[in-house]
């Protein structure tokens, strides 16, 4: 491909202002001495110019309002979801803390704290496990009840 053909390929892009500054200089220099390319560039200009002036179709105000309403509802729902997620992490961390603390409290209250590492460890462990399971079961039931209630409230909304 010779210089002339190379420049000719750039003319449409020149009209679209999509050349690098080096390419622009090349084109400008070439069209000064090449009438065919100069004419070709002039032929591209009205197309580019009209493309820039095409009318912009406007979305209806109803569409914008509806979009805003839906996006805001989604935003609120997402914020609530994030908050619930953070709350869940805190509750789980608190539950574990309570469980671990209750283990020590359980033994202190029953006067068997010293036997933790003793021969009756297995008996202590079973009591502790039963206590923990009861705690988690109560938490689970509360969570399910809360979820059912929230779902009901959402349906009403």
């Amino acid at each position: 491909m010779n210089e002339h053909d190379k420049i000719r390929e750039l003319l449409a892009l020149a009209a679209a202002d999509a050349l690098t500054s080096a390419e622009e200089e090349q084109v400008a220099e070439h069209v000064r001495s090449c009438i065919a390319c100069s004419n070709e560039l002039e032929a591209w200009r009205p197309i580019a110019s009209e493309l820039r002036r095409l009318p912009t179709p406007q979305p209806s105000s109803w569409l914008v309002q509806a979009t805003l309403a839906r996006a805001e509802a989604k935003f609120t729902e997402q914020a609530e979801h994030d908050w619930n997620h953070r709350l869940m992490i805190i509750v789980v961390a608190f539950a574990w803390l309570l469980t671990i603390a209750s283990w020590a409290v359980f033994h202190v209250v029953s006067g068997r704290f010293e036997r933790l590492l003793g021969p009756q460890f297995s008996h202590t462990w079973i009591s502790f496990a039963a206590f923990t399971a009861l705690e988690w079961l109560a938490g689970g039931v509360a969570a399910v009840m809360l979820a059912i209630r929230q779902r009901g409230e959402r349906r009403l909304v």
Partner: peptide, 23 residues
């Protein structure tokens, strides 16, 4: 940061361009 007014500003600012592009 969770500012709903910013959402409204952005939708208003981009409404014509985005709708035209999609159309």
């Amino acid at each position: 940061r969770g500012d709903l007014n910013a959402l409204s500003e952005l939708i208003t600012r981009y409404q014509n361009r985005l709708y035209r592009y999609l159309l």
